[in-house]
Amino acid sequence: MSVAPPLLAVEGLTKSYGGIHAVRGVSFSLRAGEILALIGPNGAGKSTCFDMLNGQNKPDSGHVRLLGEEITGRKPREVWRLGVGRTFQITATFATMSVRENVQVALISHGKQLFNLFGSAPKFDRGEAGRLLELVGMGGYADRPCGELAYGDLKRLELAVALANQPKLLLMDEPTAGMAPRERVDLMRLTAQIAREKSIGVLFTEHDMDVVFEHADRIIVLNRGALIAEGSPAEVRGNPQVQAVYLGEGLVYDARHREGASA
């Protein structure tokens, strides 16, 4: 009797740079449709960990498996083809193209038409591009030059692009960094809704505890490269070790999320 493998299984992930252990034996797993937050102090190894999941960075040892298939050390573009979408901390979009064209490029790649020299790209999968933009609430912006978008809209465009290959897993590195509080909530609400509808697993890093406690199903905490806690938002919030290394006294995020606060 074998149990179906989890969507994402990370096992003993380790990486060091010049004698410093950035990530030490990190293991966790993620189910389809689950929203998992990765938090921890600056320099705890979150970004390194994240980059190793989609091949941006190669681990020294350890395994990353997607639905049981080993993807450790594969190139980002190969990992993407297996169904892992990603957004970046600092948005990475094609600035000289229109919003729709940004999505079309991803669809072209998904359709393996990258080396098609004489087709018409402006007409390529226009309908699907439109649907994806509608999905993230950017339908009205399709013809706008991407370089003119406000920051929050760029983040939503990134989400649409990440969804273009019907991913099974979404990796979001500080998805709401640099956004206003209202925009943060909107974006995460949208992400959660899409993830649940399409049964996509989401792993995100974040410093805004309001966002984390509100939207994550589960939280894992990284400190000095190692996992120190894992659990529901309430469990993590109440964990004294997490409070000591990361959460502090809770002065700088919403009172509703402070431990023991009655709100």
Binding site: P76, R77, T93, F94, A95, L114, N165
Partner: peptide, 16 residues
């Protein structure tokens, strides 16, 4: 054009 605008993004959507 995608590779010109952002190598990072184009690699992340499967473009070599």
């Amino acid at each position: 054009r995608a590779t010109r605008d952002s190598t990072l993004r184009s690699e992340a959507i499967g473009i070599d």
